[in-house]
């Protein structure tokens, strides 16, 4: 059997066109989940096929691609996806957020502010913010169409009644352009404010659930809350042990078996740049 060559970025042109049409619809209706005919990809559903299809549909030979998972370039799944595009599209890849034109991410938004020249592609496991309150697709579709979101606030109310706080810490629901409520993917709520008025285009791909949605640049994104229990960013009691940052999301690392802990920046590129800048300052 002869091995067949693959098209640029793996997907055939018809499929890319179909995905781009879905992306355009998504941009035209910010926060609305557009159904699309997700293809079987060479990585399993749940491992980023949605993000990969979106990236494959928009990437061109001159693009520079960065892929992160949990904020890091070197985690196994990020490595695997980056290698996939290097192999099937032969595009330049980078770990430097400022150099990338397309950033595909799982579960984090980069700490470095993005520009209008960039597109952020999120990997989404469950696109439907109402899913855990209402398992039926037929019903959630109607709820979005009629903007019937009371049940979302009921959930937040229950959290406060039970715990004294809203108990959602990631995949925190937000209202886009004052209309649709969306699930921003399992980013920590720490990252939610970055979605609001972002200069970059933000695209969300859910392969298994077959949905694409988008936040156009400079769109209003408001995390759900109550007036008297406003949305609060997570605060850390520590600074990054490597670069000293106090404004980035920190990973907790277990360093010994006596319970020793250390906190380091989740965004590895951000941390490295800060360390390099500090070293340069120290040298001067």
């Amino acid at each position: 059997m002869n091995p067949r060559p693959y098209n640029f970025a793996y997907l055939d042109e018809q499929t890319k066109r179909m995905i781009r049409r879905a992306i355009l619809k998504a941009i035209a209706i910010p926060g609305y989940q557009v159904p699309f005919a997700s293809r079987e990809m060479p990585m399993p559903y749940g491992w980023g096929t949605g993000g990969v299809q979106v990236t494959a549909a928009i990437i061109g030979p001159d693009d520079v691609l960065k892929v992160i998972d949990q904020g890091a370039d070197d985690t196994t799944n990020a490595v695997s996806i980056r290698a996939f595009f290097a192999k099937t599209a032969n595009v330049a890849t980078t770990t430097d957020t400022t150099q990338a034109t397309i950033i595909q991410t799982r579960h984090r938004v980069p700490e470095t502010p993005l520009s209008a020249e960039q597109i952020l592609v999120y990997q989404v496991p469950i696109p439907e913010p109402l899913r855990f309150l209402e398992p039926r697709e037929t019903e959630t579709r109607t709820m979005h169409a009629l903007a019937e979101y009371g049940v979302m606030h009921v959930k937040l109310y229950e959290d406060i009644a039970r715990h004294g706080h809203i108990a959602t810490t990631y995949a925190y629901p937000a209202r886009v352009a004052d209309r649709y409520i969306m699930d921003p993917s399992p980013i920590p709520k720490f990252d939610n404010p970055k979605l609001d008025d972002c200069p970059a285009l933000q695209l969300f791909g859910a392969g298994r659930e077959k949905r694409i949605y988008a936040i156009p640049p400079h769109t209003r994104v408001v995390s759900l809350d109550f007036e008297d229990h406003p949305f609060e960013r997570t605060k850390f009691d520590a600074a990054c042990a490597f670069c000293g940052a106090t404004d980035s999301f920190l990973d907790e690392v277990v360093v010994d078996d006596k319970g020793g802990r250390m906190f380091v920046c989740s965004d590895t590129d951000y941390c490295e740049k800060r360390r390099a800048a500090k070293a340069k300052d120290a040298a001067e």
């Binding site: 049940v151 009921v154 009644a161 039970r162 007036e227």
Partner: peptide, 27 residues
């Protein structure tokens, strides 16, 4: 009723559905 939602949540739901956004007042 929503059998697994608190009584307060059950009563407050309609208020939240029509735009109620103040936890204290809903409660």
């Amino acid at each position: 009723l929503r059998m697994n939602v608190s009584a307060g949540g059950n009563i407050g739901e309609r208020l939240m559905a029509i735009g109620g956004r103040h936890y204290g007042r809903i409660r």
